[in-house]
Write a protein that binds this DNA or RNA. Sequence first.
DNA 1: CAGCAATAATAGTATTACTTTCACGAATGA
DNA 2: TCATTCGTGAAAGTAATACTATTATTGCTG
Lengths: 228, 228
Amino acid sequence: MEIDIHLPKNENLYLINPENSALGKKIIVSSIGMIRELGIEDFTFKKLAREIKSNEASIYRYFTNKHNLLVYLISVYWEVLNMKIEFSTEFTVTPKDKLDRVIDILVNIESASPSIKNMDIRSLHEIVLSESAKAYLTKKVDLEDQQGYFKSYEKLVDTISKIFIEVNDEYEFPRALACNLIETTYEQFYFSQHFQTLTEFQNSDSKPKVKRFLETLMFSVLTKGTLN
Amino acid sequence: MEIDIHLPKNENLYLINPENSALGKKIIVSSIGMIRELGIEDFTFKKLAREIKSNEASIYRYFTNKHNLLVYLISVYWEVLNMKIEFSTEFTVTPKDKLDRVIDILVNIESASPSIKNMDIRSLHEIVLSESAKAYLTKKVDLEDQQGYFKSYEKLVDTISKIFIEVNDEYEFPRALACNLIETTYEQFYFSQHFQTLTEFQNSDSKPKVKRFLETLMFSVLTKGTLN
DNA sequence: CAGCAATAATAGTATTACTTTCACGAATGA
DNA sequence: TCATTCGTGAAAGTAATACTATTATTGCTG
């Protein structure tokens, strides 16, 4: 399956829109693979240039630095996630079912994603697991936020928090809870992959358990006080 | 107030124990201030050497690299936290009160911490907010975990999860929840400091609200099903 | 006071994260 | 159709980083 979505995102994230040229597309597709393999620290534009048989300086014409490329890639991921959630909850009637859908998508995204613009969503998912926090854990956060670097994430949080409100419009912290849901999902997967002592999830059976963990957590806070 | 605790930690984290020499102590005390100011990316041993009027090579004889120094500092923080929790819950009777104490300590640690070995716990707290995830988000996690780099964190999770079990011994995921509690606390503070759209917490009044957010979250999951 | 360990001074290396300059070919537009 | 400009590539250059190695100097310890 191949879906052609229009990836929005902030123009401040790139110098030349990578979607509009062959080189741009190669940068995106290959960088996903390389960052997944090497991690953002060991990934360099020089290595990428070598891989795609292009030139370091050419890549710098698209992205000011690798940090911006990372933020761009992760934004794409949040866009995809948000889109899936909106599609999937559009015709879902009860708020609780919607919330169920959200959690299901969060937990299963990489196993059920169409390829978008040749991007390997599975690899992107792995990047999100281990690199996404680095996008905002910078001394320049405030400046970058001001320039809209995190708009896609904010949109996603907005979508999810609205569903929380549908479930319980008296709940006081829907946004904080939405951040918590997103971040916790990735943390739990990361922890289950790397620290046996820190989770109850085995790498093998982690998905259904993480799902149950998240469902219990979300439904408990949101329906607390309400009987049934 | 000055408490002299014996900081345990893993011998693999340093080459020479920094607690045993004047230079070692200077490295620790000054690096906390510098990493807080510059962030780990812009912090270098060369700059630190200049600041403490020592030499780059001398610092390298204590820590193999700045990453290990960061992991060391963050471990100290987890040790302090763990200690505070153990002290504070030792004579607390009911499990729910213990959980209350834990959350209170997590939320208020920097405002109520004695200076330990001249370390500025407030600065250390800021480092934990914005740098602690980078300690484990590395391609070398597995190797580092094997060498005990994250033992202090694991101990803390253990302490907290045991309290969860006291509150409800049927709850399925006490460890995952403990990680969630710790990570969420720092995320929420970080988000409230940098992204107005992502939280319900204003920077000014964040503490009591974050506390209520966490209490509601924890008590809901743990007491769900149980009436009252 | 000799001897040793810890520290300092200095220099050196490979790599990173860029920037700059120039040159080429293809498309564009007047 | 010719001139221009655009995107790309090639190459070289720079300042800084993350170390390592060598040698000198201090200061304490037996």
